[in-house]
Amino acid sequence: MLTHHVKQLDADKPTIILLHGFISDHTTFHLVEDDITNQGINVITVDLPGHGSDQSSYDEKWSMEFIANHIKKIVDYYQLKNVYLHGYSMGGRVALSFATQFPELLNGLILESASPGLANDEDKLSRIEVDHNRARYIQHVGMKQFVEEWSQLPLFKSQSMLSSEERERIKQMRLSQTPDGLSKALIDYGTGVQPSYWKALHALEVPTCIIVGSEDKKFIEIGKQMHESIKNSKFHIVNEAGHTIHVEQPTKFDTMIIDFILGGKLCQDNGKL
């Protein structure tokens, strides 16, 4: 079973499982947990393989199937019956993997700045090379330099608007990861090697909320395409946010999550976002 953290647990209440992105861990959701639990929703945050306090064996291949099976173990262990799965970025790819393998276990799916992977074999091979090179690079330069360079990626430009305290917290969270864990994560379940879920989207019947930030142009296009493929989905662009909506706009994030779980409103903002 993956290392996970339970905010509160009442098996009779709905539960949301939150999955973080690359070079992150369960603490990335510290701004949004309380408002969700205050509405009577159980929150479980997971440390994905190679991140946070995860104890997954390095002798195992951390494939998408491996991770999905371990998330299922969490659902089974707590005998959860009303489950919503959220995934951010890399965690969104994991969430889609779980949804395609165990749709009967989900009441809803939330995809934040997420992608179904690469559909083209040539693109996949190219990305595998990028992921392997990046894995070697992390080992070579160490966490301090890698975190500095990672933070400068255009994807995270909008985080410059966060408070200095939050930017420092994010930096320390990233620095707490390990080169070995991140390298294996890239090689075992990076974007290049993961299965493409584009074709599976048409068969997905789980109610799905797709959210992206208004400053995240690449994922706006990906989100639109996913929305067109998933019949029971709604697509929402969150204003004044980039790639990390749950960090940059936590109140808006909580509004959507709570309305989705308690009101059945897919990305419904009611003019509040």
Rank of each mutant, 00 (worst) to 15 (best):
M226K: 09
N133M: 08
E104H: 07
T28P: 00
Q172P: 02
I36F: 02
V206K: 02
I23W: 04
I220A: 04
F102E: 04
A203Y: 08
S56T: 13
S229T: 13
A11Y: 10
S56I: 07
K72V: 14
V238A: 11
S89H: 00
S89Q: 04
M173W: 08
F260K: 00
P14F: 07
Q8A: 12
S113R: 03
M64V: 11
Y58L: 15
H4V: 10
K231C: 10
C267E: 01
Q172F: 10
L162R: 02
T251F: 07
H26L: 07
L153S: 12
N69Q: 12
V83N: 07
A95C: 07
I110H: 01
L19T: 10
G264C: 10
T15P: 05
E104N: 11
N42I: 02
W198I: 13
E215Q: 13
G21H: 01
I187H: 05
T27R: 14
K144T: 12
E168D: 15
R93P: 04
K124F: 04
G271F: 05
Y77Q: 11
Y189T: 05
K184E: 03
I245D: 00
S113M: 03
S233M: 05
H4Q: 07
I230A: 02
L125Q: 13
P154M: 07
W62T: 08
Q177K: 03
H26Q: 08
H246N: 11
R174K: 11
M90R: 09
N69F: 03
M143T: 06
I222R: 00
I16A: 06
H140Y: 09
F156L: 11
Y84W: 09
P14Q: 09
D10L: 12
D259M: 08
K272N: 14
K184Q: 10
S126D: 09
G92V: 06
G87S: 05
V6G: 03
H132G: 05
K171L: 15
P207H: 11
L155Y: 10
H70L: 11
M90W: 08
Q139S: 09
S196K: 00
L18W: 04
A203E: 07
L266K: 12
V193S: 09
I44P: 00
I110V: 15
